[in-house]
Design a protein around this nucleic acid. Structure first.
Lengths: 128, 128
DNA sequence: CTATATGCAAAAAGTTTGCATCTCC
DNA sequence: GGAGATGCAAACTTTTTGCATATAG
């Protein structure tokens, strides 16, 4: 099958809005009746991120969280800190800013990470 | 003393250019003859980051790295991936971009993280 | 003397690896 | 039968906690 389990992981990821940790996905899959092992979840996630199918980033407390990305292109994320809902956004302004300041300081071979956190409309309303 | 060791940590951080992990600082201090313990380094780092004296961020492999910041104001970092040298940069363009796209998507209470990585002039030359 | 700081060792938490088993071809 | 996929348990890494000792005031 080559990717039976990997597909389960991919789907678990695809069926949710925001970022999920490996442990979350594992719990989801198990709760769903799957007999998948934590190891396999990690391995699937590694494979998926290697092939660029999912995005990985770290939470403030060191947990790795993953997300299935819609687009293959370079983009950033706008994440609701309350519900985890994620919006993929493009930031040409950021790209050029990063390039500019890097060049200005003599840096080459630039890469950057940009994550924006906030409370989405729904959660803001719910929270008052 | 209240902060004898904490000061050692603060200084270790102040005397270097880039981000350092707790383990790095611990190693530095020990190499320097200090009898400080890893635990204390972590506790000092926590205290320092609580009081806003140092910046914390995570490397891709989940290690927390710390840095003594010059300015108290909001700023971002341009880090050399070869030598670790760090430049603090301001990004008004990024701030407004983040605000704009967040607002556009109905998000409020925005915060963001931006880190730019590259190879500095010196390292680029050294590397060819 | 009392409160805080410190250090060592053990405990957690998350992630990875070793190894035997199972499935597909 | 052979290669890759899978699961369990053990190993690892980083960070935190428990507890006894040392130090400041």
């Amino acid at each position: 099958m080559t990717t039976t389990r990997r597909n389960a992981v991919r789907e678990a990821l695809a069926s949710c809005e925001g970022f999920r940790s490996a442990q979350d996905i594992y719990a989801d899959l198990r709760a769903d009746g799957s007999k998948i092992g934590l190891t396999t979840v990690y391995r699937a996630l590694q494979a998926l991120s290697d092939s660029g199918e999912v995005d990985v980033l770290r939470t403030a407390d060191g947990e790795a969280v993953y997300r299935a990305c819609r687009s293959e292109e370079h983009h950033h994320h706008l994440v609701c800190r309350a519900c985890g809902r994620t919006v993929e956004v493009e930031g040409p302004a950021v790209e050029s800013w990063a390039d500019a300041i890097a060049t200005e300081h003599g840096f080459v071979n630039i890469t950057h990470t940009v994550e924006v956190f906030g409370t989405c409309a729904g959660c803001a309303r719910a929270a008052g």
